[in-house]
Design a protein around this nucleic acid. Sequence first.
RNA 1: ACGGGAUUCAUCUAGUGGUUAGGAUGGAAUUCUUAUACAGUUCACACGGCGGUUCGAUUCCGUCAUCCCGUACCA
Length: 951
Amino acid sequence: MTASSQEQQDYRATLNLPLADRDSGAFPQRGNLPAREPVWQQQWLQNNLYQQSLQKPAPRGIWTLHDGPPYSNGNIHLGHALNKITKDIVTRYRTMAGYRSPYVPGFDNHGMPIENAVARRFREEKKTPSRVELRKACRAWAEEWVGIQSEQFQRLGIRGDWQHPYLTMSSEFEARIVEVFGELVQKGFIYRGLKPVFWCASCETALADAEVEYEPHTSNSIYVRFPLHHDPAGMLAAADAPCYAVIWTTTPWTIPANLAIAVHPEAEYVLVHAEKEGEACCLLMAEPLRESVLNACGFTNANTLAAFQGSQLEGLTFQHPLFQRTAPILTAAYVTMDAGTGLVHTAPGHGKEDFETGMRYGLEVLNPVDASGRYTAQAGSWNGSSFEGLRVIPDVERKEKDAPANIVLLQALRESGNLLAASKYEHSYPHCWRCHSPLVFRATVQWFMNIDHNGFREQALGIIQQVRWYPPESINRIHSMVSGRPDWCISRQRSWGVGIPAFYCTACGEHILTPESIAAVADLTRRESNDAWYERTPEEILPQGFCCPHCKQGVERIKKETDVLDVWFDSGSSHRAVLGSENPWGNMDWPADLYLEGGDQHRGWFNSSLMIAAATRGAAPYRAVVTNGWSLDENGEAMHKSKGNVVDPGKVVAQYGADVVRWWVASQEFMADTRCGDTLLKQVSDMYRRVRNTFRFLLNNLADFDPQTMCVPRSEMEELDRWALGRFDQLAAACTAAYENYEHHRIYQETLNFCSTDLSSFYLDVIKDRLYASAKNSHLRRSGQTALYQLAAGMARLLAPILVHTAEEVWSHLPGEKEAWSIHLASLPEPQPQEEGLQQSWNALLQVRDAANKALETARQGGQIGNPLECCLEIAPDADSADLLGKYESMLPTLLLVSQVVLLPAEQQMRFAARAADGSKCARCWLIRTDTGHDSRHPALCMRCVEAIET
RNA sequence: ACGGGAUUCAUCUAGUGGUUAGGAUGGAAUUCUUAUACAGUUCACACGGCGGUUCGAUUCCGUCAUCCCGUACCA
């Protein structure tokens, strides 16, 4: 080491350099989040942070977000993380903004996926559990996943009442569901009716849509003619031979259930004269399908006799091809022209759309198939032999190729002469996920909520208008869901759910739903859980002396309903089980200020909750609804296990930390679809590092700063420091507005911008000299430190709802007494009013700085200067900036990071010239100064540094 | 298939019926070294396609394409 560098080294120690990582108390450069975050979380838990957040003063009142319960089956995925973190940001913001903002997380426990998983496990063990055994196992299963998901959410830093989450399977919640159901009964919303459902004849059970698997299946493709029965308006007067309607179907076994023929009201239909095997007839079919029908059926000599619009055909009736029964022509919008004949065989008992059409026209729901998939006597007979007992689907175990019913029906149709063509047809067809038998659609008795009861639908649509929807266009989704939804089928033929609290009288056959019978079930449920509904007898459940309200028979003739409620009824009741002072939490308001869920919930939870709230309370359960988008992979495609593009939040937490996941959430405009993947996470993690590095610089320069005694009042601070705090005030105002409007990505953008542009590349760069080289206790330095302190504290507060762990870490490194032990109990920064003209002047100075930087760069490229710090910059201002530069002349060297600035007289255009500075380099501050060496004690130092050392 | 929504540099995003579409990050080159995982300078990089309305469209309308949701593990 040379003598001079030795000397420098000595003076280096006299600089007020920031703490380095090796120094104790330094804010470390590396976050080491995966290891450090759990420590903070532990601390929050031990000190009851959540409870304290509710107890702190809340001048702005209570603000309630009601959590939509995730289904408690399986590990959480990125979508859950996005949703929960967003909610957490919102409630933490509210807490810091002066509200009491409780957050009670919920879990959705009942339902088919868990029941199926548990049933599968029993099957593997070759056990057949009783209903109650199955329910207990489901309960245990759900409980296990509640625990796992709860851990996973908490690891993401989600704050809430994790000790007391709401579970839809808790006795209290189940009882409230029963009560809500009772209210709907009392208000006349509940009825029983028929509905076609997917039915597995071999399992003898209804299946939910999610249990249906589509597999290839060979069906019979048949064309059948229906002879004209009645033509009241003489529509078919042009006919020169017997008239028939031609239909096409792939399920011959549904022909006995045919009650109508549907046409599209706007499509074109034709009456065609055609011949086959010497017989002439007139056939009605859709014009676009004319050729394909005639070809398929082998007709010749075709000749179109007349054309009609579909709606004109209404009123015609045709005869059933086998029975003495008529089938009217109806119109339906779902009739398509891409297959068949354009005339659709309609069997309301065996098809969803057929059923709806039937309802519209008041047709009977004929369902001549029993639970085991066999025709009942209602199916009728042909040539004196009844169809009763024939199976309508093939027996998979016996390897039947076709169902007996199809074979018999084809034969009967052939004999009747009405079968025009038959062939095999391969297509994808619904099968049972369990036994892989083909399914049938079968009308069954179900429980419904009547959406049109007393103008309810219109009322609900009106209520939607009162709610604030984010983003605004999302109101279209809920609106179209509510305006188009059919009656709500609320019953399921399942075990794991809340039993529908209805009784039946075996004496008179009526069902029993009285206020006291329902209250009895609710009480029982509250005491013993809804499992007791299945364990107890009606005698045990119903009050003493209860008898059938219809026929007055005693309780011994009364039986229980076995269906359970749709799980959407459970979660749709959550606002009644959680919000309001009558519920165990007692600290949540009804209605909620906010629901915040993914867009799929317009069909689901937003909808079911609205139905129940509007029907029982006449209002929406939420004042505002925010819809978050879907999380997709880096290419904007949905994540699939099979595609291998799934981002597991648990892995990201383990690799980068929860704050990086949260920072990712904040980086995305979450109301639209969001993207996530390795490169994106890498970028977000770099951005996290930038914020962290900024905090590090701020904090590590505050090691000797005691805010209680050393803070310089704002009015006495250096103007540059006031500028920086003024910029921060602008940032704080922008971020607060962004929180308020759920535009979290603006916080991310604005904060990073502030850190990079305002702080790193300008302010912090400029004040380094002041911080490092000024006397420790000088006003210049303390003013700067005051700004650093306020920036660190302010930014940490601003970001605390998002970077929950890092903000707490910053808080813990902040010197001096603090407002609260945890930053999450502190308040958001309150921006001070902007100082008149300050930002304008400094914007102009920044422009000069840009220009100066360019000039310095040119000079450096030209070899005139080396390090800008060692040069003198001559500035000839233009007329506009002369005053400004004159005013700030003494500050210019610091602002421009040069040793000297010489201001020349104004010229037409601003001009810069760089040259070596006068004087010699100070060994301590590295500035070239003319007073270097003036003090004999420190011949290598400038006078400023001498002063700094000697005081 | 139908319904709802989306599409701006490599990435995240501003913004607009009218000059050169803004910022940040990232990339390339280069300079400097008292945050060395810092900063300066320079450069490259975008309105999905096609029609229409208009004097003029990235912006409004239509349509097509792609993606997403409703409808698989569902926020």
